[in-house]
């Protein structure tokens, strides 16, 4: 039903636009404002635990916006509380990574971090080059699909409302919502892209997203073993609640 699909698409696009940390215009204005050589050097000379803490704070901030996005998706708050929490716990970082492609400049491989754009080398002192480079590769590959804001919105919702998460109490209800979102996404992609495989290409990025989140958990565990105090005392409580082993 076209009417229902249109309503769902409009609701998700509106929810996305209302809950993005930066508007498209703001991002365009910032796109070529990069951290200077001295600023990058400053990030590189930070102790490992300090930069980890800064990143945990940024990620947590982004996640709060994703929670707000979820709440505004029609049907999400009608799911049982267990499933709302489960979908957010398992999907919020994936949505943050999808949203990150908005704040990624593929022309010079830089990402917006603390007000300006910077490259991978900015995160050197985190001590997890594999994770950082995988995240940058992902952002670059998602940017290459040249998604519109509407497609990013619907794809984010599709990533979040997923029946692949274990321990859902009402998987049928989640599935119904997921199907509607995919129909809307498919409809919009057919309208915008000449490439018939565009949707398939987009969906094929989902396993990479979940692999990135697994890698993040592993890196966090390794970091926590070396700096338990930093995690316990200085990391945002929400970040610990979501990712603590």
């Amino acid at each position: 039903n076209c009417g229902i699909m249109h309503r769902i698409a409009q609701n998700i696009i509106k929810s996305h636009l209302e809950t993005c940390q930066y508007t498209t215009e703001e991002l365009q204005q910032l796109a070529w404002q990069t951290h200077s050589y001295e600023e990058v050097k400053m990030y590189q000379s930070k102790p490992r635990d300090v930069l980890w803490q800064q990143c945990a704070i940024q990620i947590t901030h982004a996640i709060q916006y994703v929670v707000e996005f979820a709440k505004r998706i029609s049907g999400f708050m009608e799911l049982c509380q267990n499933d709302q929490i489960l979908l957010l716990k398992s999907g919020c970082l994936e949505v943050v990574l999808v949203r990150m492609c908005r704040a990624f400049n593929p022309l010079n491989n830089t990402v917006l971090f603390e007000g300006k754009y910077g490259g991978m080398q900015m995160f050197k002192s985190l001590g997890c080059d594999d994770l950082v480079s995988a995240v940058f590769d992902f952002a670059k590959s998602l940017c290459s699909l040249q998604l519109t804001e509407e497609e990013i919105a619907l794809f984010s919702a599709a990533v979040l409302i997923s029946t692949d998460r274990p321990w859902l109490m009402e998987p049928r209800k989640v599935q119904k919502l997921q199907e509607k979102i995919y129909f809307a996404l498919q409809h919009i992609m057919q309208k915008n892209h000449m490439d018939e495989d565009a949707l398939a290409k987009l969906i094929s990025r989902i396993p990479t997203l979940s692999a990135l989140c697994t890698l993040h958990t592993e890196e966090l565990q390794a970091f926590q073993q070396l700096h338990p105090e930093t995690v316990n005392v200085l990391f945002p409580p929400l970040y610990k609640e979501l990712f603590n082993p």
Partner: peptide, 20 residues
Amino acid sequence: KEKHKILHRLLQNSTSPVEL
């Protein structure tokens, strides 16, 4: 619920775009 009390609270809170 107890394990995810912050997430639970965020879900319960009503927030406006302005507050974000």
